[in-house]
Amino acid sequence: MPFPALADNALLPATQSLPQHVPLAAQTRDGLVESIHYGSLIATAQDATGTRTLFAAGDPLAPFYPRSALKPLQAVAMVRGGLDLPADLLALTAASHSGADRHVLGARRILEMHGLAPDVLENSTDLPYGTAEREEWLRAGGTATQLTQNCSGKHASMAATCVINGWPVKGYLEPGHPLQRLVAQTVTGLTGEQPLGLSTDGCGTPLFALTLRGMARAFGLIARAAAIEADGPAATMTAEAAVGLAMQRHPDMVAGEHRDVTELMRLAPGMVAKDGFEGVQLVGLPDGRAVAIKISDGGDRARMPVTVCALEALDVDTAPLASIASGAVLGGGRTVGAFQALNFLSTPVNEAP
């Protein structure tokens, strides 16, 4: 029987345009490979000539959507636009939070500091993202709201930035709005590349198609600025440093308890890390090096083991990260296999000059 026709064949990419991903992680059970996750990654460094590739696997120059990994860049844009928040709330601005009380109340605090009410938010509604937080919210009779949606800190800060600049709050998500033009300009500057496409993220924010290389460059710049300016006066601190330091000092606000990104920044001080839906992970190091990863199937479990493996390849001490580097495969309550990153450095690389 032939496959049924899709309603819109334009949604199907041409086979030749598919990214050339490679195996990055696998699960084994009693010596047999049970499942494989493909993807692409790149590690970069900054020097006098610009962004230099240290190693890569797969197709690191294929356009992709960074999803929530874009939030630190959006936060930099807002700080450049005059947003001035306590560090914990600035970290929440760059967050995909779990919806704990401190996250929801933090988003409300941002609004109240700028004379705003929650009804100005234009993000989608959702239950808290964290499992425990969601269950607690539901037990208390809660429903999906904009404040509990994991991007509410970013949206509260977007509305606040509009107030600071005298821009209309209503319509702040429109690509032509002054706020979003500032974000686009900032993203271009930090990544060093023009967006390769435009879409809309799950929360409603404009979303740019970029490359892993460009995103790695941005995170390297943010982490390096944080390291250089950590002990400097706040009055002269760059937006990149302010965002990076806020994330480092308040990793619980960037994600939440029992979230691997929060654990990574706790276990490896000096790193700036952010994940994104559909298998995206970015990590910036204090010396300006960075890692950018995209898991092709959009699954979440391969993201952190591959990240830790890439950090190890950069000669980072990953011993403190053992708890998030791999996972045991159980059979009858005992370990019968493992889920871990593969030796992706031995695979061919599809990277343009």
Score class of each variant (00 low, 15 high):
P4D: 02
L12Y: 04
Q185P: 00
E263C: 03
A100F: 01
P195L: 02
D30A: 11
L11W: 10
A69Q: 08
L138Y: 00
E112Y: 04
L105T: 08
T236R: 15
A241R: 11
L198V: 13
G331S: 12
P286F: 06
A26W: 08
A246D: 12
S157F: 02
A227Q: 10
A227M: 03
V261Q: 10
L179K: 01
A5G: 01
L207I: 00
E351Y: 05
I295G: 05
G153M: 10
P72S: 02
P175M: 02
L70M: 13
T145D: 04
T143G: 12
G166I: 08
A290M: 03
Q194N: 05
S17E: 12
L24A: 14
H177N: 09
T93H: 04
V329D: 05
P86E: 07
L282W: 07
A57F: 07
L282N: 15
T131Y: 06
T205M: 06
Q20V: 04
P178R: 11
E263R: 15
G298S: 05
V316D: 00
P19C: 06
G276C: 03
L210G: 12
G284C: 01
A10F: 11
L245V: 12
A48Y: 00
R181N: 11
T131S: 07
Q46E: 15
V349Y: 01
M304N: 05
A302S: 09
T28D: 03
P23Q: 07
A341K: 10
R289Q: 14
L212A: 02
M158G: 13
L264A: 13
T307A: 15
P353N: 11
G204V: 00
C203Y: 12
V22T: 14
T125V: 15
T188V: 14
Q46F: 02
E174S: 13
